[in-house]
Every structure is written in structure tokens, then in C-alpha cells.
Amino acid sequence: MSGLGPLTSRELKKWYRNPISLFTGLIQPLFWLVLFGSAFSKISDFGPAILDGAPNYITYILGGVLTIIGLFTALFSGVNLIFDRRLGVLGRFLIAPIRRSSIVFAKIFSSSFRILINAAILIAAALIIPNGLKFVHGFTVLDALILVTAVILTSLIFSSIFTTIAVRITRPDTIFGIINLVNLPLLFVSYAMFPPDLMAGWLSDMAKYNPVSWSAETIRTVIINGSLSASQAYHVSVWLGGLAALAAFLLTLTYFVSEKEIRE
């Protein structure tokens, strides 16, 4: 897929050259941690059982925040495609001998890369702040790999959905509308922020099917428990399997839609 390399590096170049987007991207994870960590810290008064054994709320919520950071960046991954179309740059890509899907995959991969950087910063920050992230039961290389996989899969899932939507959209406000419509439901109908026991029954039932929950729960499980028990390992592999299957399906869909449907 020629074109993918140069287009992805173009995307990243534009990102790290923009000091404001770089700054906000880096500072945003801290906001999340500090705000949510303080706003809902009273949840830990219910005792460690409700937090699945996490020593504090930050440790509990980190899996959720990591997922949400990925989710929110991914939701915007299609926006640049619309601006490329508006500014005429897309025309240059369409007359180049590159696969048309590479134009879309460049957006997906560059946003995944940015999400990974943000995730790393978030984890570092969580470790530094007082009463922050604590690996009570250790953290192995395998745990780290599981964590990274979950973050990447979540970002692939949502960025493929939103770049595919952007394949035929010509107005940025259209996609902003769609993002606004889905971001809060995706966040609150999930186990990203709150333990299932604190949620209304119907909400919790729906949250089970949300990939945001799968990712948040996966990361949470490895962060809190270190080496996993058999049943925990089973749950994690079901969640990761679900994420991987969904990501594979959506990336395939993105490939076909972008090859056929992308135009100015």
C-alpha cells in the first residue's frame, strides 16, 4: 500500500508542528485524571470491594481514562479528512498512484500513534501524582502488552468508524454533530468511569456490549491484579478477542468503503 508511509508521516508532522494541539493533547490526560480522580474520589469510601480491589480511585479509573482518551482522539480522526477535502489536498492524493484506502488508513494509524503517546504520558502522570496509580500486585511485561493492545484496538475501532463516515462528508459541522451525539453515550453507557454496581441495572446491562467497557475492564484487570488468575485471564481474553474481532471487521469495511467511495 504505497502512500501509507508518506501520508502517515505527513499527518504526524502536522501534529507535532502545531504547538497548541501538541500542548492540549498532552495536558488533557492530566485534566481527566485530576478532575475525575477528585470528583469521584468518594467512591472509594464504599470500600475496596466496589473498586474491584483497587487501592484508590485513580488506580481504578485509569483503565477507563486510557480508553476514553483513545476514544475521544479516535472520534476526531475523520475531521482532517474533511479538511483535506475542503482545502483541495485530497485532489492531489486522488491523482497519485496510491491506493485510495491508504489516504484513510494514514488517518487511522496516525491517530493511533498519537493515542499511544498520550497514553504513555497519562500513565507517567498517574504514577507521579500523590495518591495516584499503584501497582499493588506488580505489573509484568505481559500486562503492559495487554494494556497497549487494548488501547490500540479501541482506537482502531473508533477511528475506522469515524474516518469511514468522513469518506463522503464535505462539511466539518456534520461530523462534529455526529461526534457530539455519540461521545457521552459511549462514555456513560460503559464501565469506563463507574463500577457496574453503582450503575442503574439497565445501563449496566447495555454497557456490557460497549467495546469501551471491554477495553476499560481489560486494562483495569491487569493494572489492579498484576498476574491474572485463571478466571481473570479468561475474561481478559474474551474482551480482547471481542475488541480484535470488531477492529478486524471495521478495518476491512474501511478498506472497501474507502477504495470505492472516497471522492472530493
Binding site: L7, R10, K13
Partner: peptide, 29 residues
């Protein structure tokens, strides 16, 4: 597309890149 060159009526270069970066991007395609 491999054997043709195109100078479209509307502008297609990326404003956020330098002139030479734009040309290099195209050459990599």
C-alpha cells in the same frame, strides 16, 4: 496515474508543509 502528471485547476498543495516537503511527499507517492 503512474505515468501521468497533473496540474489541476484548483490548488492542491498542503499549506502546513513547506514547498519542498510538498514536492517530496508527491515524489514518494
Amino acid at each position: 496515474r503512474r505515468t501521468i502528471g497533473v496540474v489541476p485547476q484548483d490548488l492542491t498543495t498542503d499549506e502546513d508543509l513547506t514547498g519542498i516537503e510538498n514536492l517530496k511527499l508527491v515524489s514518494r507517492f
